[in-house]
Computed example of a mutant assay.
Amino acid sequence: MLKFLPGILLLQVITVVLVLIAPAELSGLGWLRLLIPVGIAGVLTAAWFNSMAAHHNKDELSRLQECHAKEREALRINAERAKTKVIKQAHQETIQEVRRSSTEANIKVGIAFAGAAGIGGLLLLTQFITLGLLMLTTAGGALGGYVLRLRQEKAKNLLITTPTPKGKPRLINASAPTK
Rank of each mutant, 00 (worst) to 15 (best):
G167W: 09
E153M: 07
E153D: 11
V147M: 04
Q152S: 09
P163V: 03
K154E: 13
K156I: 07
R151L: 14
L150S: 07
R170V: 01
R151C: 12
P163T: 04
P165A: 05
I160M: 01
Q152Y: 09
G167H: 04
A155K: 15
P165G: 09
G167R: 13
K168F: 11
G145V: 02
A155N: 07
Y146N: 04
P169Q: 13
L143Y: 10
L159D: 13
A142Y: 12
K156C: 03
A155H: 12
K168R: 11
A139T: 11
Y146P: 00
R151T: 10
T162S: 15
K154F: 07
G141R: 04
R149C: 01
G140V: 09
K166L: 15
E153G: 07
P165Q: 01
P163Q: 10
Y146H: 05
T162I: 15
N157Q: 14
G145H: 11
G144D: 05
G141M: 05
P163S: 05
K168W: 09
L159G: 00
L158F: 00
R151D: 10
N157P: 00
K156D: 05
G140M: 13
Y146T: 03
V147R: 10
A142T: 12
L158N: 07
K166S: 15
A155I: 00
G141V: 13
G144R: 04
A139S: 15
A155S: 14
A139M: 15
L158D: 11
L159Q: 02
P169C: 06
L143P: 00
T164C: 10
K156F: 04
L143Q: 09
L158V: 11
T161A: 06
K154G: 03
P163F: 08
N157I: 00
G167D: 05
L158A: 02
L171S: 06
T164M: 10
K168H: 11
T161S: 07
E153F: 01
T161G: 00
E153Y: 04
Y146A: 09
Y146S: 06
R151Y: 14
E153C: 05
G140D: 04
P169M: 10
G141P: 02
T164Q: 15
P169N: 15
V147F: 06
G144V: 03
L143W: 12
R170Y: 02
A155E: 14
K168S: 08
G145E: 13
I160D: 00
V147A: 02
K166Q: 14
T162H: 13
G145C: 10
L171F: 08
E153V: 05
P165V: 06
A142L: 15
K156Y: 04
R170P: 01
T162L: 15
K154Q: 11
T162W: 14
G140H: 07
K154S: 06
N157S: 12
P165F: 02
R151I: 12
N157E: 02
A139P: 11
G144W: 07
E153I: 07
L143T: 02
Q152G: 03
A142W: 14
P169K: 09
L143M: 12
P169L: 15
T162G: 10
L143I: 01
P165I: 10
L171Q: 13
G167E: 09
L159P: 01
I160Q: 01
K168N: 14
A155L: 08
L171V: 07
T164F: 02
I160H: 00
P169G: 06
L150T: 03
R149K: 08
G167Y: 11
G144A: 13
K156M: 07
L148I: 05
A142V: 12
L143C: 04
L158H: 03
P169S: 14
T164S: 15
L150G: 04
